[in-house]
């Protein structure tokens, strides 16, 4: 009698659909498999954006899994019609690219969420988003997107794919069309033709560099990053794409964070840092912390934090990590 009951119980625990142990293990394995597949797709997309090809080796390296497992993984994905291999190179199919963009969107939206709403430090959000990006439906992502107020960039400044799966690529114009004395930031280096690309890299120019045109004539361009000069033929230079340095960075150069103000030292708010987004930014604005507002620290407590600042006739206490995101200019 007891024996029978015990057997039934064990059987139930093991085999009960959905909540039984075996069902759970199966669910878990399925989820793990999907995760690996999505990571592989993302890797392919990443490579394609960089203009390089993904290979089984590069997948093994990025996902940190054994070679034989990679082969099985690739076969599996190929069978689903998401990638196709040409020789050793792997390519995303249209369907595969759609899926990869979906995962990328999930990843970057989660990063935005973690940075804005959960206020995680920037160096932690990538790992956490990596864990959370899987197993989301389109509808769930749309909801997250709406709740975050439709952000267009992730906290690292990379574009978030839109709901139609379009990527707002970093725009920019060729430096040959750029005004001579205006500072610029390199946003894209055209890799075709390869020879020009090699020359650009050899000269020491890289993505994200801030440069200025020193001299331009039909024979050559001279660019400078403030320290060294780069000489390029116009045909080569036309492969460098630049855009304006964000206004916020220009402003920041002449400002100090609010935390550095001395007691009772009056200052004017220059701007809120770009890294303050979401709820915190809205709250700051609502409290009247808008550019141009006069502010000064008025109270500090035993621990040195929070400090209270007088803004628009009211005393408002802020923690130091938040105050550091408000840029001010002493007056």
């Amino acid at each position: 009698m007891y024996y029978l009951a015990a057997v039934i119980t064990v059987a139930l625990i093991l085999f009960l659909p959905r909540i039984g142990l075996l069902a759970r293990i199966k669910d878990y394995r399925a989820a793990k498999e999907r995760e690996q597949m999505e990571d592989a797709l993302k890797h392919l997309l990443d490579r394609e954006n960089q203009g390089r090809h993904a290979t089984p080796e590069s997948i093994a390296g990025t996902l940190d899994i054994a070679r034989d497992k990679v082969t099985r993984l690739i076969e599996n994905i190929e069978a689903q019609g998401l990638i196709e291999s040409r020789g050793n190179n792997l390519h995303l199919t249209a369907e595969g690219e759609r899926w990869a963009l979906h995962v990328l969107r999930a990843h970057r939206l989660w990063e935005r969420y973690l940075a804005d709403e959960a206020r995680m430090p920037l160096n932690k959000i990538h790992g956490e988003a990596q864990r959370r990006e899987h197993n989301f439906t389109e509808a769930q992502l749309n909801e997250l997107d709406a709740a975050l107020g439709h952000p267009i960039r992730d906290p690292h400044g990379d574009p978030i794919p839109s709901r139609e799966g379009k990527m707002n690529r970093a725009e920019g114009m060729s430096i040959t069309a750029w005004q001579a004395d205006r500072p610029a930031r390199i946003v894209h280096l055209e890799d075709e033709p390869a020879l020009a690309y090699q020359q650009i890299l050899a000269a020491g120019l890289r993505l994200g560099q801030d440069i200025r045109i020193i001299e331009k004539n039909p024979n050559r361009y001279i660019l400078s990053d403030g320290e060294s000069e780069f000489k390029l033929a116009p045909a080569v230079a036309s492969n460098i794409f630049v855009s304006a340095i964000p206004e916020s960075e220009m402003l920041k150069r002449e400002a100090i964070p609010l935390t550095e103000l001395a007691h009772d030292q009056r200052a004017q708010i220059v701007m809120l840092d770009d890294s303050v987004q979401g709820f915190t930014r809205r709250r700051f604005l609502d409290l009247g912390l808008t550019p141009g507002t006069t502010i000064f620290p008025e109270l500090t407590n035993f621990f040195g934090e929070p400090r209270a600042y007088r803004v628009r006739g009211t005393s408002i206490a802020l923690r130091n990590d938040q105050a550091a995101q408000i840029w001010v200019k002493p007056v």
Binding site: F279, R282, R283, L285, D286
Partner: peptide, 8 residues
């Protein structure tokens, strides 16, 4: 409320 935008 400080505003109608934040919505806590």
């Amino acid at each position: 409320t400080y505003s109608l935008l934040s919505a806590s």
